[in-house]
C-alpha cells in the first residue's frame, strides 16, 4: 500500500471557493428556473466523490462489500447502489468501474478499500475534480436524451439500473438510470460547458429548467 502515494486533494469545506465544472456555464449561459410547464428539469450534483477502480472483479467485489456494504454490479453496462442511492458503482469496462459517493467520503473510502485489497493488483484513482453528475427528471427527459445520444434510451431497452458510456452530440458521456424517474449523465469537466449548453438548447422545446 505504501508503494502507491495517497493524497487528499479536497480542500477544507467552506474555507476556499470551489467551482463546479458548470460554474462558468451558469455565469455565461444562465440557469432558467423550472416553471410549472417544464417537462424536464436539470440538476447538477456537484462536488461528489468520484473514484475509478481498476482490477479483478472478484477482489474488488469482496473489498467493496466489506467497506461499503454492497458489491460490484453483476453484469456489464449496469450499476449497483446502496439503499439510499447516494453511493453507486458502475461497470465501465471489463476491469474498470466508476464509484460515486457523497463529496468528502472519497479519500477515506480509498484508504479503506486499499486496506481491504492488500497485495492484490488493482488501482484506485480519484477523479472527483474532473467530472460532474447531472440529473434529468421529468416526462420529457427520455425524449431529450433521444435527441442527444446515439444509444437506445427507450425505457424498454434501458431499464432501471443500466448505465453506459456513449456518444452525446459531439462528445462522450456516461448515461445511467438509477431509478424509474431519474436519468443521470456523468460529464467530463472539459466538456461540461458544451454538454450544458447542448441540453439547454435541446431542452428548450420542453421548457427545460435548471434547479440549483
Amino acid at each position: 500500500m505504501s508503494k502507491v502515494h495517497l493524497y487528499d486533494t479536497r480542500a477544507a469545506h467552506g474555507q476556499v471557493a470551489a467551482e463546479s465544472p458548470l460554474a462558468f456555464s451558469y455565469h455565461r449561459s444562465g440557469a432558467p428556473a423550472p416553471q410549472r410547464h417544464s417537462r424536464v428539469v436539470l440538476r447538477e450534483r456537484a462536488f461528489l466523490g468520484h473514484l475509478i477502480l481498476r482490477g479483478g472483479a472478484i477482489v474488488l467485489d469482496e473489498a467493496l462489500r466489506e467497506v461499503l456494504g454492497f458489491g460490484l454490479p453483476a453484469r456489464p453496462n449496469s450499476l449497483s447502489q446502496d439503499a439510499s442511492g447516494e453511493r453507486s458503482v458502475q461497470w465501465l469496462s471489463p476491469d474498470e468501474w466508476l464509484l460515486i459517493v457523497p463529496g468528502g467520503e472519497e479519500h477515506d473510502l480509498e484508504l479503506g478499500l486499499r486496506k481491504a485489497l492488500g497485495d492484490a493488483h488493482y488501482a484506485i484513482v480519484n477523479v472527483s475534480g474532473g467530472q460532474t453528475l447531472l440529473e434529468l427528471e421529468g416526462p420529457a427527459a427520455v425524449e431529450l436524451l433521444m435527441k442527444s445520444v446515439v444509444y437506445d434510451v427507450n425505457p424498454l431497452a434501458f431499464p432501471v439500473g443500466k448505465g453506459v458510456t456513449t456518444v452525446f452530440a459531439k462528445t462522450t458521456v456516461i448515461v445511467r438510470r438509477p431509478s424509474e424517474s431519474c436519468w443521470e449523465l456523468v460529464v467530463r469537466r472539459s466538456f461540461a460547458d458544451y454538454a450544458y449548453r447542448w441540453l439547454l438548447d435541446a431542452g428548450e422545446e420542453y421548457g427545460i429548467g435548471v434547479q440549483a
Binding site: T9, I52, R54, G55, D95, H121, Y122, A123, V125, N126, V127, S128, G129, G130, Q131, R188, R189, S190
Partner: peptide
Amino acid sequence: DVTFTSVTDHWA
C-alpha cells in the same frame, strides 16, 4: 501488472 487512468480533467 499496471493500470492507466486519465486524470487530465481532475487536476488544474
